[in-house]
Simulated scan of single mutants.
Amino acid sequence: MSDSRAPRRLTSRRRLALFAAGAAAASLTLSACGDGASGGSAQTRFVQGKNGVDTVKPGDRQPAPALSGETTTGKKLDVADYKGKVVIVNVWGSWCGPCIAEAPNFAKVASEVKDKGVQFVGINTRDAEKSQAVQFEEEHKVPYPSLYDPTGKLMLRFPKGSLNPQSIPSTIAIDRQGRIAARSIGPLAEDDLRKMVDPLIAEK
């Protein structure tokens, strides 16, 4: 009797292990540091760019979600206050290697386009303490504020079927009307970041 039951118990354990592995993989979709897979569908209506930047035509853009809260330095910030400007939202963590690699590119471009109606905003996530994020910002001379989002709640506010952040780092471009216009998953080189920002600056 015991021998005949063994295979069934093993099968159940295997199923449980597979289920747990699948759940773990799903939970890492938003927390994985590095490149994520971006796929399109009939609902998303975005164009996958060769430079890794996915874009949406103005008529197909969805409103960006409410992004507000406390910054890494303890100030209140509401991205809606920047409506009328192009807003570049960068999701990052101080522990993330690709975030460290792209930080100088973001600091440089943000400073250069500030007077062209562009506001950069960070979303710091998965850092247990604000001090970790502040140290990163100081070290890399980040010239713009970042919302402190240790549990990733703000990332989950992006609507289903939109160009939503799917990994860390991710970058979202919001047009002057407050709509999601472009996304990049993974670290951005300086030239690719400019290719994301410049067309939105040119829009009237």
Rank of each mutant, 00 (worst) to 15 (best):
R157F: 06
P143K: 12
V87F: 07
T151F: 15
A64P: 03
K76W: 00
S111M: 02
Y82T: 03
A42C: 05
G40V: 11
P165A: 15
F120T: 10
D3Y: 06
W95S: 12
K114Q: 10
R126S: 13
G36V: 07
A32M: 15
Q119G: 03
L67M: 03
K85A: 05
T29F: 12
C99E: 05
G84A: 08
G40D: 06
A101F: 04
R14S: 09
A182C: 00
A20Q: 10
T44Q: 10
E139T: 15
D35Y: 04
A80Y: 01
A66S: 13
W95F: 12
P199G: 09
K116F: 07
R194V: 02
G93I: 11
R176H: 01
G152P: 12
T29E: 15
A32S: 15
R194C: 03
F136G: 08
A21E: 09
F120M: 03
T171K: 07
T151C: 13
I123M: 10
I174F: 01
D78S: 04
T55D: 03
S38Q: 15
P58C: 07
G186L: 01
G122I: 10
G36F: 08
L147Y: 13
Y148T: 14
K76C: 08
R179M: 01
A25N: 11
R183Y: 04
G34T: 06
S184F: 03
I185S: 06
R14K: 13
S68L: 11
G122K: 06
G49I: 03
G152L: 10
H140I: 11
A26G: 12
Q62S: 12
A101G: 06
A64D: 04
I168V: 14
R179C: 08
A110D: 05
R8M: 01
T29N: 14
G40W: 10
D54N: 13
L163P: 04
R183L: 11
D35M: 14
